[in-house]
Design a protein around this nucleic acid. Structure first.
Lengths: 130, 130
DNA sequence: AGAATACATTCATGAAAGCGAATATGGATA
DNA sequence: TATCCATATTCGCTTTCATGAATGTATTCT
């Protein structure tokens, strides 16, 4: 039965994407990078996780082709390879009753700006404190 | 840091959806139901899996609110509670280089038709054989 | 009522993934 | 060259999840 096989193979490939996105940590990373660019220390500061932990998830996302990295000096900047993933995240959120505005509000909007994390640019740190 | 907490909570909820869809079996089930309606024996015949295995995944999808079931005699018919999930699956496929047509071709198109599986309507069985 | 059929649920196990600790690499500065 | 800092990788443990086996429940038919 060919149609049978097709649907299984197709489903497998589709599930791979969802598998990648099934981790809260990776979703948070993708939103924090958003339409911009971020070094690891930025994510470290914003999300409050250890560097090694972030690097593991970044490696996963990079190997899967969702992220691309760019080295500049001793910093490595990550950005989305395809911003369509943000649309996918938004649609998933809607399915769960979350409005697109809520997602957008937490998505980094800057298209490919330099990282402004507390390490890279300490003057921005104060803004994060309530 | 409020924004920090928000993004973690939001990411958690979004990841839940992806977690649900990270199983090839569940993707195949959703596509096979598609815009129509299917009883368990239909899925059993089309996908070639044992009944208990299907029932487990159906339970997961039902409890998560993605599927709704309707009893008619001793048959239980499943349908999508919100067809938006098909759009989500299609978008995930596109991210992985699969064209929407390829997905559509394997998505049951009939809106809420009665199940026509080999058990429920044996005359259709012949059509499945190449 | 009893048997048969369609479906649901529970339980156990094995594989995979999350996550922490430790360590390695690679560029920059002195 | 030596050292520091940003980032990457490996290892190991724990937990989670997928899957199979067995069993339970609801409905129809005789």
């Amino acid at each position: 039965m060919k149609a049978n096989m097709d649907i299984l193979i197709l489903s497998e490939r589709i599930a791979q994407i969802f598998q990648l996105l099934s981790s809260p940590a990776r979703i948070a990373i993708l939103l924090t990078i958003g339409r911009g660019e971020a070094c690891v220390c930025h994510l470290e500061a914003v999300l409050g996780w250890r560097q090694a932990y972030l690097s593991q998830h970044l490696m996963t996302l990079r190997k899967a082709g969702l992220l691309q990295d760019r080295r500049e000096g001793r910093y490595v900047y990550y950005r989305l390879r395809d911003e369509a993933v943000l649309a996918l995240v938004g649609q998933a959120a809607e399915l769960n009753g979350i409005t697109p505005q809520n997602v957008d509000a937490l998505t980094n909007p800057n298209p490919h700006t330099r990282c402004e994390c507390p390490h890279c640019a300490p003057q921005f740190t104060a803004l994060l404190q309530p």
